[in-house]
Design a protein around this nucleic acid. Structure first.
Lengths: 160, 160
DNA sequence: CCGGGCACTGGGCAGACTGCCCAGTGAACG
DNA sequence: CGTTCACTGGGCAGTCTGCCCAGTGCCCGG
């Protein structure tokens, strides 16, 4: 486990130009193609790189409203609630947490009005006692990983 | 804006097998290669597909602990706090929200003990009045988009 | 009712890349 | 000291991409 600088640079390159290809990477990084290939294989079998799925923007799909809902669950109903939330397409993510609530989920909706519908659907389930919703207004830091990768790689700069 | 069924199937295919390539997609979908290519171009210039960046698993990087922190900001300090949080690699995501807190951020750390360090660094900034942290225990629904894509592809016919 | 515009088809072509293989080198290690 | 391992630099066949083109069915505006 753990990655070195070369791994970090590979991930950085991929993040900046996902369609880049192994050959071009090897050129830019100044190493042999086989090396990059081997690193990539290792990163993937390691699970460091989970995949290259398309990043879809919910807003472009017609769901510009994002919200986070903290849910309080009736004791012992966890599994049922999970199963229920899995069936709601607008639930993009679900975590069980410590703290005030028992679960935290990310929701999207077509509008603020539509969010009501989504929330009704989410909480319209017996095991959910209470829900507190926070609507996202702005997203100053979209989901990112590069700074962490660089830290894990032992600090590293740029390079295209 | 909006996607049709073919778009939905393309995204679904890509999500399932990201390395698939246009030609193979056209074969599986039973349409011409040019069609898939054109659809993909459109989806990307639409912004529906933002990119194909590598999905990096923080846990595999040595950061297995995830937490969400709700921050309360001193009036007028929003911009400074945003700037500050941007400099913390362990802050993977930051939203400004309505509701109880003013901001919600996703954090990762090397351990529960390390989380303390991260939180200290996050809240060790003048504009932050209070922070409430919820540690993620389980992630029953990892960030997903396919169900939403399918819903969007089903309902929304054309319209544009 | 006609002409366009549009998306899609099916095909072709050159160039580039991938997956795979191999021998050689240098460094770390038991 | 011999082995192991990562990396290099190179080669090869097969495949895919990017691009182009003519032909077709369909919807829309005139």
């Amino acid at each position: 486990m753990g990655i070195d600088r070369l791994d970090g640079r590979i991930i950085g390159l991929l993040a900046r130009e996902p369609r880049i290809g192994v050959l071009e990477m090897s050129r830019r990084l100044g190493v042999a193609r086989g090396t990059v290939q081997a690193r990539l294989d290792r990163l993937q079998s390691n699970g460091v790189i989970r995949g290259f799925g398309p990043e879809v923007d919910p807003a472009a799909l017609g769901y510009p409203v994002t919200a986070f809902a903290t849910l309080e669950i009736r004791q012992g109903q966890g599994a049922d609630v999970r199963a229920h939330l899995t069936t709601v397409p607008e639930v993009l993510e679900l975590h069980t947490t410590t703290g005030t609530g028992d679960m935290l989920c990310r929701l999207v909706a077509r509008s603020n009005a539509d969010l009501q519908r989504v929330i009704d659907r989410v909480v319209g389930f017996d095991g959910i006692v209470r829900a507190a919703t926070a609507i996202v207004m702005e997203n100053p830091v979209p989901l990112r990983i590069i700074p962490l990768v660089e830290q894990a790689a032992g600090n590293e700069g740029r390079r295209e």
